[in-house]
Structure formats: structure tokens, C-alpha cells
């Protein structure tokens, strides 16, 4: 109970918000808009899983938004070039893995601080994309949207993929040696090394995984509309980091869970529609997102200080 206090309190806040909506804005629960809102969060969810892993190893990756955008445009161009969805997916995953590997190399093997490395790659990839695409949208081939299924079918598939991914990742993280190594490295890299774990390899792996997940997220985003917006990744890194932080993943590594990150994401994602339904203007979204991050980190700070005493 005490161990999952943070996850449970976020879940409780989420349930409270949902109850409020049920009382004051029952329209929120109409099936189609609700489903659309949920599927719109699936790409961010995939990024959040990656970010949570990166943060567990005591690193950060703020280039995921740029990676996401680049992968989305690449996959879109491949698709527009007449290739099927599998080829687009492979291209996106490959590009993501490559960009992740670059971050991983610089952070894990050259021991550079991840905040600065990913700051640099964030700018670099965003500008590469801008230079290359000049802000033009990519029109997708027909049959890509919703995987060629009906809208409902596509949305259910997306939900299935998202849910399965969280469950699988959470299971692997909890119950495999490799998953525990992620925690070990984030908790104390030197102790990990003395235990025969290779911290550089784990960190590198996590960054590559992050990039690959960014590629996957880009494709899961792409299938939801007939076009690719080259700016679709802007700001996503913040949303993902915010979700992980709110969900209780510690910034200094080693503590947190993927289920917590999921709860954090859902909480953040519910705030905006809740504002709309409760007649608060949507312009407040970013401010409230910032406030929620601050509240989460303040709560963590107070809790860890109380634990010390």
C-alpha cells in the first residue's frame, strides 16, 4: 500500500475528476468523442512509456518530440511513395532507433549529460525536418488511416495496441532481469557496475528503445488522420515528461512505475476536456499543465523530506 502510495493517489485524483465530470458534464462520456480523445492520447502514452524508462535510469530525453516529428514525416513520405503500412512502420522504427542510438552513444558511452545532449539533438532534428519539409503537410495514401479499417475498428485496434504495450512493458520491467537492471542503474550506477551490470549498455539500450518507441508513436499518430503535420511532435516531450513526473517517476532515477505514468497521463489528458466542459477557456491548458507538474514535484519533495526525518 505504502509502496504504491503515489500511484494510488494519482489514480484517486483521476477518479475524482471523472466523477466530477459525470456529475457536471455527462456529455463527456458519449462514446465516440470519448473514444477519439482516448486514441488521441495513445501516441503520447507510447512516448511516456519510453520517457519513464529513460527517467528510471536517471536520464532525460527532451528530443522525443523532434524524433516523433521526423519519424512521422518519414513514415508519411514512405507511405505517400506507394509503400504499405508495414514499410512505413519499419522506416519510422528504424529512424527512431537511429536517433535514439545517437543520443545513447553520447550519453552512455561518452558520459555527456543527457539534458544537454538531447537539447542539442532536439534542435538539430527539428531543424533538419524544417529544412527538409519547409512546413508542408504530407498526404497519406488511402488505406493508411485507421489501418484501412472502419474508424471504430481502427480506434479499438489503437486502444488494444496501447493497452497491450503498457501491460507488456510493465510486466517485463517488473519481472525480468533486464527490467530490474533499469532500476539498478538509475538507483546507483556504480553499485550496478560492481554487481556485474553494464550501466552504459543499459542506458544505451533505454535510449534506443526510447527512439524506437518514438517511431512507433509517430505511426500510431499517423493512422489517425489523412495527413501528416510536420509540427505534430512539438511540445510532446513536455507532455510525456509531465505525465511521468505526475505519475510518480522520480527525476533522480530508480523509483516509479509504468502504471503510475499511465495514471499521470490520463489525469493530465482529462484536465483539458474537463476545463472545456466546466466552461474554463482552453487557453489555460499549458498553464494548468505547468501547475500540475509543480504540484506533483512539490508533493514528492515534501514526502521525501518527511521520510528523511
Amino acid at each position: 500500500m505504502k509502496r504504491y502510495f503515489r500511484e494510488l493517489s494519482v489514480a484517486a485524483a483521476l477518479v475524482l475528476l471523472l466523477l466530477l465530470l459525470a456529475l457536471f458534464a455527462p456529455h463527456f462520456y458519449e462514446l465516440q468523442p470519448l473514444l477519439s480523445r482516448l486514441t488521441a492520447q495513445i501516441p503520447t502514452l507510447v512516448l511516456t512509456l519510453g520517457i519513464a524508462l529513460v527517467m528510471l535510469t536517471r536520464q532525460i530525453d527532451i528530443s522525443v518530440g523532434s524524433q516523433f516529428g521526423l519519424c512521422a514525416v518519414l513514415a508519411g513520405l514512405v507511405s505517400a511513395g506507394g509503400h504499405g503500412l508495414p514499410v512505413s512502420l519499419a522506416a519510422a522504427l528504424g529512424a527512431g532507433a537511429f536517433m535514439g542510438a545517437l543520443n545513447g552513444c553520447l550519453v552512455a558511452w561518452m558520459r555527456l549529460p543527457s539534458i544537454v545532449v538531447t537539447l542539442a539533438t532536439m534542435v538539430t532534428w527539428a531543424e533538419v525536418l524544417r529544412l527538409f519539409q519547409q512546413g508542408k503537410f504530407v498526404n497519406l495514401a488511402p488505406g493508411v488511416q485507421w489501418f484501412g479499417l472502419s474508424q471504430l475498428g481502427g480506434q479499438l485496434t489503437l486502444l488494444g495496441v496501447g493497452g497491450a504495450l503498457v501491460a507488456l512493458a510493465a510486466y517485463l520491467l517488473k519481472n525480468t532481469s533486464g527490467g530490474r537492471h533499469v532500476y539498478a542503474v538509475g538507483s546507483d550506477a556504480e553499485a550496478a557496475r560492481l554487481s556485474g551490470i553494464n550501466p552504459s549498455a543499459v542506458t544505451f539500450g533505454v535510449f534506443v528503445l526510447m527512439g524506437t518507441l518514438a517511431g512507433l508513436a509517430a505511426v500510431l499518430n499517423l493512422v489517425q488522420s489523412p495527413q501528416v503535420d510536420p509540427k505534430c511532435g512539438t511540445g510532446l516531450e513536455l507532455k510525456a515528461i509531465a505525465a511521468a513526473v505526475v505519475g510518480g517517476v522520480a527525476v533522480n532515477g530508480g523509483r516509479g512505475s509504468l502504471w503510475g505514468a499511465l495514471a499521470g497521463l490520463l489525469l493530465l489528458a482529462t484536465i483539458n476536456p474537463a476545463l472545456t466542459f466546466l466552461h474554463v477557456e482552453a487557453y489555460w491548458e499549458k498553464a494548468i499543465q505547468g501547475l500540475v507538474i509543480l504540484l506533483a514535484v512539490i508533493a514528492d519533495g515534501i514526502r521525501s523530506r518527511r521520510n528523511l526525518n
Binding site: 499549458k286 498553464a287 505547468g290 501547475l291
Partner: peptide
């Protein structure tokens, strides 16, 4: 937040990064 509450600067200023810009957008209605 950083000194009195001893919170990590990276996350605190990430939060205010979002907060300050959000306030500006809210005031100007975007």
C-alpha cells in the same frame, strides 16, 4: 521552489516553463 523546498531545478523550471507561457497565452487568449 528550488532552495526552500529543495526541488530539482530541471523539473521546477520545466514546470514554470509551461506555467509562464501558459499564463501568457491565457492572458492573450492565444
Amino acid at each position: 521552489l528550488i532552495t526552500a523546498l529543495r526541488l530539482p531545478p530541471l523539473i521546477v523550471t520545466l514546470g514554470t516553463y509551461s506555467l509562464f507561457r501558459g499564463l501568457a497565452e491565457a492572458i492573450t487568449q492565444g
